[in-house]
Amino acid sequence: MSKAVYCEKCSKEIKFRGDLVTATIFFVVVAYHEDCYVKELKGFRGLFLDNQPLNGFSGNFLFVMAVLVGIGFAFGSLKWVSIIAVIPVLYRLFSFYKFERLLEK
């Protein structure tokens, strides 16, 4: 791919998907190296940084659960819950589109 992905903390290029961690800071999706993400959680910005990465096992699990909850409540009487369940799905899709698809596996 043509566009490079840079770490939010150290500003170095992230070259492989295995080294990428995406997270949210005040509703903005940012990319980190795996080591930089851990250091950032311990720092001041850790207060504003979501502790759950958007990619990886926990992000993918949340994505699947949000899709299931959204579909489950879309046909019931609590349709507003399905709208709320779309938020993690959109974050995960945005993370993939903006960062992960640009990197090698």
Rank of each mutant, 00 (worst) to 15 (best):
K42N: 02
G56L: 04
V5A: 08
V29F: 02
E34H: 05
L68G: 03
L93F: 14
K12L: 08
M1S: 15
K9S: 13
T24P: 00
R17K: 15
S82H: 13
Q52T: 02
I83K: 09
L47M: 14
F63C: 10
L68S: 05
L103G: 07
D35P: 03
G59Y: 10
L47G: 10
A23N: 06
F26K: 09
I71L: 13
D35I: 07
G70T: 11
I25N: 01
S2P: 12
V38C: 02
M65K: 02
C7F: 00
A66E: 05
V21H: 04
T24Y: 01
V29C: 11
L102E: 06
G76Q: 13
R45K: 15
G18N: 15
E100P: 05
C10N: 09
K79D: 03
S77L: 03
A4T: 14
S58L: 11
K39M: 12
V89Y: 03
F16C: 11
F96H: 11
I25L: 09
G59P: 11
N55T: 03
V38K: 13
A4V: 13
A85H: 04
I83P: 01
K42W: 04
L54H: 05
P53M: 03
F61G: 00
A31Q: 09
F48R: 01
Y97A: 09
V64K: 01
H33I: 08
K15L: 15
D35K: 13
L102S: 08
I14C: 14
C7D: 02
E8R: 14
G59M: 07
G56F: 09
Q52G: 02
P88E: 06
E104Q: 09
A31L: 08
G46P: 04
E100T: 05
M65E: 02
G72S: 08
Y97T: 04
Q52E: 08
Y97H: 12
C36Q: 01
Y91C: 07
L103H: 13
V89R: 10
C10V: 03
K12G: 10
V21R: 07
